[in-house]
Design a protein around this nucleic acid. Structure first.
Lengths: 112, 112
DNA sequence: TCGCATGCTATGTTTTGCATAGCAAGCTTA
DNA sequence: TAAGCTTGCTATGCAAAACATAGCATGCGA
């Protein structure tokens, strides 16, 4: 497992540019979702699995290590929680949530 | 290839919630990157490949179809370009770019 | 009609993710 | 002290996604 941090060469990028590192990390399956689920508060490994539609534990564990290596989440007494950087990322993703709602509406106004 | 639109059940979600549909679509490899590269203007299939570090044409083609089905990009005379929805998504992702820069700085201030 | 760019498709391999089972450690209750 | 929980996680075998590379058909200008 390659750690993903800006400044290090990442999958899909020879440049190491921060955004590309972020897109690499967040583009991995379940990564965005895990962060999203932690926005509201900490989760244990198992409650996180449930929140993520019973994601395979192997994948969850891999993502958790990657996100920890990237400094976005951290272990706490109750399991896992967003770090300061992770919370900032959560806020940076808020417009995405807003966009998704409008996107949904523009495609099928009855779908919500 | 399953089309990803909100209101339809998607990978990793039994709910069809718009955000989950978005995370599904955008969480697929290269999807965010392709959108990002189109932010600055249209690309031909081949120039898009180059911009994306020579992504495999099969994957690029798959992503292009998915993004077209989702109404985020469209064919134009010069190849591919963001649709109105796609441009809005581009704007919604801007905070992510800003965050990536700060993230990078917080991890390794010399890395930029 | 030659060369070149375009948008792809095909094929075989590697990587990633999945489903399921289960284990070791630390409770807590009896 | 031992049975029964929850916790975090590993193991294994299989399926799907992505990869690298080659190449094809079309349209264009020279």
């Amino acid at each position: 497992m390659r750690a993903v941090v800006p400044g290090r060469r990442v999958r899909g990028s020879q440049t190491g540019r921060p955004l590309m590192a972020a897109l690499d990390l967040l583009g991995r399956r379940w990564a965005l979702r895990v962060l999203w689920e932690l926005r509201a508060g900490s989760h244990t490994f198992r409650s996180l699995r449930e929140a993520c539609e019973d994601i395979s534990p192997a994948v969850l564990n891999t993502r958790l290590r990657e996100l920890r290596d990237a400094g976005l989440i951290e272990r706490v007494a109750e399991g896992y929680a967003l770090s300061e950087n992770g919370r900032r990322l959560g806020k940076a993703l808020a417009p995405l949530d807003a966009w998704a709602g409008r996107w949904s509406h523009s495609l099928s106004p009855t779908a919500d």
